[in-house]
Nucleic acid binder design. Structure first.
Length: 332
DNA sequence: GGCATTTGACCCCC
DNA sequence: GGGGGTCAAATGCC
């Protein structure tokens, strides 16, 4: 691609494609808020996955836009701080959308396990972040929240006996797209770490979702997140919580939502820095459990997409159906 | 001042 | 009785 074309793109602020991303994102975000959980079988799950794929593609376009802008700025020796901030904000929102889409789908599949109207069963929510598969303990999972003791008069504490809806063990803390409020912390016997207790912040929507987070291993760090119940709230993160990287720098996992995507590199990201403990994402405002506040963790970790920009992509998405064309490898 | 977190106490279950 | 889950007042932060 010639430099003249680059300049042409740069003079459109924002560029057409980028503004299209913004429009698509806000439209889909608006649609998202109309209803939260899919209730229509495979169709709903398919739509959720398609939405996640679209968001991922839009994210890539946002990153492309910023990447091109950076090059243009180098050529023109000019800065456009506002557009950079804008693209980063959009990228963050898009990542959250993708995460929420995946979480919704997994929860939905999980919720459907006991129903025999579908052959899809998800039992393994683990994923690799270090190149090796995390061990899962899913015994007792997939059972609806049970409230056995309803005694709740003042002075007596209501206690719930429940089984986890689902749980996962990861080497990083995952932002599932929802906001959580920490309501307790407990040292668990035979472990060196606290267990933290969280509730969904959307109490006004009667959302009863809860989760427990506990560090189960020190080196490499493993965090076990156990979810109880399902979100009934319609919204998710709206606040400007601190965004921290969601992908481990040593991640070797690559998700592809499109058959047309060709992966030119197995390992997209450079090797991890020496610090072994990377609690990379904290969904609540300030997570204080010992496992999350790791002294070795650099506070201002670079957002991974800045590394992703160093990589080569070939992404082709059908504009007529879902989206946005992205071809990074053609030009620079 | 409002909101989130911390932390000690209370309560239930095994 | 001990471990684990929850509550709520105290505290901190913005």
């Amino acid at each position: 691609m010639s430099l003249s074309l680059i300049f042409l793109i740069s003079n459109i602020k924002p560029s057409y494609s980028f503004s299209k991303v913004l429009t698509n994102f806000h439209n889909q975000n608006r649609m998202e808020n109309l209803g939260w959980f899919p209730t229509n079988g495979k169709k709903a799950m398919e739509e959720e996955l398609i939405r996640g794929r679209d968001m991922a593609n839009q994210l890539l376009e946002v990153l492309t836009f910023e990447d091109k802008s950076n090059i243009i700025r180098q050529v023109k020796r000019s800065t456009s701080k506002s557009s950079k901030v804008l693209s980063k904000d959009v990228a963050q929102d898009l990542v959250r959308e993708v995460l929420k889409s995946l979480t919704n789908t997994l929860l939905y599949l999980n919720n459907r396990e006991d129903s025999n109207d579908d052959s899809i069963v998800v039992r393994d929510f683990s994923f690799s972040t270090n190149g090796h598969k995390m061990e899962e303990d899913l015994d007792g999972a997939y059972i609806e929240l049970q409230t056995l003791n309803t005694k709740s008069s003042k002075g007596t504490k209501k206690r719930k006996l429940c089984s986890p809806t689902w749980e996962k063990t990861t080497s990083v803390l995952i932002d599932d797209g929802h906001t959580w409020r920490k309501y307790g912390q407990k040292m668990i016997t035979n472990t060196k770490f606290f267990r933290s207790y969280y509730k969904c912040t959307n109490n006004d929507q009667q959302c009863k979702a809860m989760k427990h987070v506990q560090r189960t291993q020190e080196n490499p760090p493993l965090y076990k997140t156990t979810y109880y119940g399902y979100h009934t709230c319609k919204s998710y993160i709206q606040s400007d919580t601190n965004w921290e990287p969601i992908l481990s720098c040593h991640s070797s996992m690559l998700l592809s939502f499109d058959n047309n995507i060709s992966n030119k590199q197995e390992n997209l990201l450079p090797p991890s820095p020496p610090s072994p403990s990377l609690p990379l994402l904290i969904s609540s405002k300030e997570d204080s459990i010992e496992s999350i506040q790791d002294d070795n963790f650099p506070q201002n970790q670079l957002f991974p997409y800045e590394n992703l920009q160093l990589c080569e992509f070939d992404v082709y998405t059908d504009y007529l159906t879902h989206g946005n064309i992205l071809s990074l490898s053609e030009s620079f």
